[in-house]
Amino acid sequence: MRFASLGSGSAGNALLVERGSTCLMLDCGFGLRETATRLQRLERSPGCITGILVTHEHGDHVGGVFRFARKYAVPVWLTHGTWVATGESHVGLDLRIIDSHHALSIGELEVQPFPVPHDAHEPVQYVFSGAIRRLGVLTDAGEVTPHIREMLSACDGLVLECNHDARMLAQSIYPASLKRRIASRYGHLENSVAAELLGSIDCSRLQHLVAAHLSERNNLPELVTAAIAGVLGCAEAWIGVARSDTGFGWRCLN
Score class of each variant (00 low, 15 high):
M1W: 12
R2D: 12
F3Q: 02
A4K: 08
A4T: 04
L6M: 08
G7T: 00
G9L: 14
G12R: 00
N13S: 10
A14K: 04
L15T: 14
V17H: 07
V17N: 01
E18V: 14
G20E: 10
C23L: 14
L24P: 06
L24N: 04
M25C: 13
C28I: 15
G29Y: 05
F30L: 05
F30D: 01
R33E: 15
E34T: 10
R38G: 06
R38K: 10
R41K: 11
R41T: 13
R41C: 08
G47D: 15
C48K: 08
I49R: 06
T50C: 12
I52S: 14
V54M: 10
T55L: 09
E57S: 09
D60K: 06
G63S: 14
G64S: 14
K71R: 15
V74T: 14
V74N: 04
V74A: 06
L78G: 09
T79G: 11
G81Y: 07
T82K: 04
W83S: 09
A85V: 13
T86Q: 09
E88I: 15
H90L: 10
L93C: 04
D94G: 03
L95C: 10
I97E: 06
I98V: 14
D99N: 04
D99G: 06
H102Q: 13
H102N: 10
H102M: 13
I106S: 13
G107Q: 06
E108V: 04
L109H: 07
Q112G: 00
P113L: 13
F114R: 03
F114Q: 09
P115K: 11
P115C: 11
V116H: 02
V116A: 03
A120G: 12
H121P: 07
E122G: 14
Y126S: 02
V127H: 00
F128L: 07
S129V: 00
G136R: 00
L138M: 10
E143I: 02
P146A: 00
I148E: 01
I148M: 01
I148S: 00
I148D: 02
E150M: 00
C155M: 05
C155N: 01
D156V: 00
E161K: 03
C162P: 05
C162T: 05
N163I: 01
H164Q: 03
D165P: 03
L169E: 03
L169Q: 06
A170I: 10
I173H: 04
A176S: 09
L178V: 11
I182D: 12
A183W: 12
R185P: 12
Y186R: 13
Y186C: 10
G187M: 14
G187P: 14
L189E: 06
A195R: 10
E196H: 02
L198D: 07
G199S: 04
S200C: 06
D202C: 02
C203L: 04
S204E: 01
R205T: 04
A211P: 04
H213V: 11
N218K: 01
N218D: 05
N218G: 03
E222Q: 09
E222H: 11
A227E: 07
I228K: 06
A229K: 09
G230E: 15
L232D: 02
L232F: 05
G233C: 11
C234P: 02
E236V: 02
G240S: 06
A242V: 13
T246Q: 11
F248G: 12
F248W: 15
L253D: 07
